[in-house]
């Protein structure tokens, strides 16, 4: 059973068919070719597939594709056009990625935090990324990068 679904993907209207039971993540990666959200666990435990749906942080792997009909879906790819998001720059400056698998989800989660809370405390940053697992960095450089962007955006 296929169902038509219409939504905007990073600002661009798209229409396609989804299979019954298909996740938004599979739609994005396999049918739209946007491979920035990653498939980590498929259980909601790693945050590698974090995207924004109507501005709200969500897990693409646990989102039934046809439920995004009419919604605005944003992946990390939306943040890097035309220029890199300051968070992406800061992640590079702070060496906040090693293998890089968690990075897209981490940046979407961090951007969502800063959009709603431009001056987060360290604990608020920790809370905001607590659903995004990183196994390489020990989180420290990630937290530093996010706090650095917050300081820079508030003073700007």
């Amino acid at each position: 059973m296929t169902t038509p679904v219409h939504f905007t993907h990073n600002g661009r209207p798209v229409s396609l068919f989804t299979e019954a039971g298909e996740s938004l993540l599979s739609l994005l990666r396999l049918k739209l070719g946007d491979q920035t959200p990653k498939y980590g666990c498929g259980q909601g435990g790693c945050g590698a597939c974090s995207v924004r749906i109507d501005g709200q942080l969500r897990l693409a792997c646990l989102t039934l594709a046809e439920t995004v009909d009419g919604a605005e879906v944003e992946t990390v790819a939306a943040l890097s056009a035309p220029n890199l998001d300051p968070l992406q720059e800061a992640f590079m400056d702070h060496f906040a990625a090693q293998c890089g698998y968690c990075t897209p989800g981490m940046i979407v989660a961090a951007r969502t935090l800063l959009d709603t809370n431009p001056r987060p405390s360290r604990d608020e940053v920790i809370e905001a990324i607590s659903g995004n697992l990183c196994r390489c960095t020990g989180y420290e450089p990630i937290i530093d990068a996010i706090l650095a962007v917050a300081a820079q955006e508030v003073s700007a």
Binding site: C41, D123, I126, S130, G138, Y139, E140
Partner: peptide
Amino acid sequence: FDFSSYVMPGPGDLAQH
């Protein structure tokens, strides 16, 4: 059976190093 039961320290369990 998932990343909650495979226990790892979270960002709130960081050691000062």
